[in-house]
């Protein structure tokens, strides 16, 4: 709801109770990250080792880049289930181009261009032709996965020479912080500005409420839809490029697990700051939370499938809370606004 936002600017007073509620919705997820970290650290102090922090921040960066665009697609009331296969395609395309003897620049360009093309195709089919977003993106995901596998004939392509992004992944500051975190946070800050301060951000959330109404007040809904899917494609492709550098290889099957991870992050994040609305700050915090959770379960020696169950349950609980909260906020918001 935009109501909470209006509250802050037009009624700076507000009761203590409301300010506490506000603080709770803003800070519960960061608090959960801290609590989880401390809980794991009390049993396995290794989680705070420099090497482990660096690993968590690296996977945080890849994941955050991958779902930045997805956050807005879901915020606009659409769905994109092709992002993880776009990342896999970009990852393989990067490795394949290098194996063909292209330079890193050309390889990265090709990977990002592929992401852009898939995103624009998704956007045109969903926004201009008004086909169901799930069917369109499920199909493009299948096509991307097939092309990714075909590029390496079903196997991994190794990358021999480290590329220009390698220093970004090399931890500094006592080996705890990979520099890639800085550009990722800068891009996220820019996205947060666009989402909170520019008209485009308003339109995204308005689209989720009533697309016909937004269209009839003169917002170019089709163009905006194409832009959102294109951004999702490009950001997923950028994550694929980072993965190529990080893993020094193209992995055709890398996409699969990211589907549930990406959706969990976006929806869990959607319960922070703006309850029931996916947003950039929430996505970043939730990405960090999932990163700590993965690292923690790995350190505690839980097998992969148990983590999968925990994560699915988390997503389900998150959804339930977000849906119930959105219903309450919805009712309260209208009363406030009137």
């Amino acid at each position: 709801m935009t109501m909470t936002y209006i509250d802050k600017t037009t009624r700076p007073g507000g009761t203590l109770r409301r300010r506490m509620a506000r603080l709770t919705t803003d800070l519960w997820l960061p608090a959960a990250v801290v609590v989880l970290t401390l809980a794991v650290a009390s049993v396995r102090p290794q989680i705070l080792d420099a090497g482990n922090i660096a690993a968590v921040l690296k996977s945080f960066s890849v994941m955050a880049v991958m779902v930045l665009g997805l956050t807005w697609v879901i915020a606009a009331g659409k769905i994109d289930v092709s992002f993880m296969q776009v990342a896999a395609l970009a990852n393989m395309l990067c490795a394949w181009s290098l194996a063909q003897g292209w330079g890193w620049g050309a390889a990265i360009g090709a990977a990002l261009a592929a992401g852009l093309v898939v995103g624009v195709v998704n956007g045109l089919l969903v926004s201009a032709m008004r086909l169901p977003a799930l069917i369109v993106t499920i199909s493009t995901a299948g096509i991307c996965a097939s092309i990714a596998a075909a590029l390496g004939k079903g196997t991994v392509i190794r990358i021999e020479a480290p590329g220009p992004l390698a220093p970004l992944l090399d931890p500094v500051l006592g080996g705890a912080v990979p520099p890639v975190v800085v550009p990722v946070l800068l891009i996220a800050a820019l996205a947060w500005f666009v989402q909170e301060r520019l008209a485009m951000g308003r339109y995204i959330y308005a689209m989720a409420q009533n697309e016909a109404a937004v269209r009839s007040v003169g917002v170019p809904v089709v163009g905006l839809g194409v832009l959102l899917f294109a951004l999702s494609g490009v950001s997923a492709a950028a994550a694929g490029v980072l993965l190529a550098e990080h893993l020094a290889s193209g992995q055709p099957m890398i996409g699969g697990p990211y589907l549930i991870n990406g959706l969990t992050v976006v929806l869990l994040g959607g319960m922070m700051v703006r309850v029931g609305k996916p947003n950039i700050l929430g996505t970043l915090t939730a990405t960090l939370f999932i990163g700590v959770l993965f690292s923690g379960t790995a350190l505690l020696g839980l097998p992969d499938y148990q983590r999968q169950i925990i994560q699915g349950a988390l997503l389900l609980i998150g959804l339930a809370v977000a849906t119930l909260a959105a219903r309450h906020h919805g009712a309260g918001g209208h009363a406030d606004g009137a």
């Binding site: 769905i79 289930v81 549930i260 959706l263 929806l267 169950i309 994560q311 997503l315 959804l319 339930a320």
Partner: peptide, 29 residues
């Protein structure tokens, strides 16, 4: 969950699918 609690269908079924996918490993790992 989807009909009575009005949770979004796509994400709910992805979550249930993921939990089931994990539970499939319970018997034999």
């Amino acid at each position: 969950a989807i009909s009575y609690f009005e949770l979004p269908d796509i994400v709910t079924t992805i979550a249930v699918g993921s939990i089931c996918g994990g539970l499939a490993f319970l018997y034999t790992g």
